[in-house]
Nucleic acid binder design. Structure first.
Length: 236
DNA sequence: CCCTATTACAAGTCTCAATT
DNA sequence: AATTGAGACTTGTAATAGGG
């Protein structure tokens, strides 16, 4: 089983507000602390005032007291650490437990390609190199997991670079890791980022493979779950 | 004057390169 | 071999600039 365990010294707190991209304030026993927000998404549906959050102490010497790990939403925990999916996928690759990506001998992290850096490069002696990009998803709307949570120029750029890689004869894969368990399908967030949605459709047409995975989330950790159907609507 | 648009800044973590 | 520094990465906020 592919699983990322959270540190044992976690506690809960009440979310107050997000100060900026990186910092939020939280309430513990009516005392206010600063907490690092380890995710670039907006998460405005999740980070509501009063929401229960799971936190861990930040390393000493930093500028925040705690780090946000999860937020409770409709009585379910959702992981908001955008780096966790990378660790999860890395573990799964090492365990050879992602059927679509089995059989590669070597795994490299953060490999440069063109002007981008992809999360993983998979290599074997007898097949083409495979570039893999992992995306963290925290937003679900009525069963539909959505990405991105905020318009991102980089997201589209990554997809286009994957298309280039495929055109060169490599294998290109993007994998969306949905850090919650209430999704039924995955679909790009067209309202939020039209460019990304179009880029994803184009990428698929050009041979980039797209997968989405659900997760089982609890305060103990995050377990990689089943595949979700990927639905990309044709808009043109 | 006010509303919109643009811009700079803040922060934590990771990687890679350079230095000890 | 181990440590350090720079750079990339990201959005909300505030300050500033520009147009009406």
């Amino acid at each position: 089983m592919d699983k990322i365990l959270l540190p044992k010294n976690t506690t809960t707190a009440s979310f107050i507000k997000r100060i900026n991209r990186f910092v939020a304030t939280i309430n513990i026993n009516d005392q206010v602390f600063r907490a690092h927000v380890p995710s670039s998404g907006r998460m405005k549906e999740l980070l509501l005032p009063g929401a229960q959050v799971l936190i861990a102490p930040s390393p000493p010497g930093g500028r925040t007291d705690f780090k946000l790990l999860m937020v409770k939403h409709h009585s379910a925990w959702i992981s908001i650490d955008s780096l966790l999916p990378n660790r999860l996928v890395k573990k799964a690759l090492q365990n050879n437990s992602i059927p679509e990506l089995n059989g590669y001998k070597r795994v490299f992290s953060e490999q440069k390609y063109g002007n981008s850096r992809f999360d993983f490069l998979l290599q074997s002696d007898n097949k083409a190199d495979c570039y893999l990009e992992v995306k963290s998803v925290t937003l679900v709307e009525s069963g539909v997991a959505r990405f991105p949570d905020a318009p991102s120029e980089r997201g589209s750029k990554h997809l286009n670079e994957l298309v280039d890689a495929v055109a060169e004869g490599f294998r290109g894969v993007v994998m969306f890791i949905v850090q919650r368990s209430d999704a039924v399908i995955f679909s790009p967030h067209e309202r939020q980022d039209e460019k990304f949605t179009k880029a994803l459709g184009r990428a698929v047409n050009k041979g980039v493979e797209v997968y989405a995975r659900q997760c089982t989330v609890s305060p103990a950790g995050v377990i990689l779950g089943v595949n979700l159907p990927v639905v990309i609507e044709e808009s043109e």
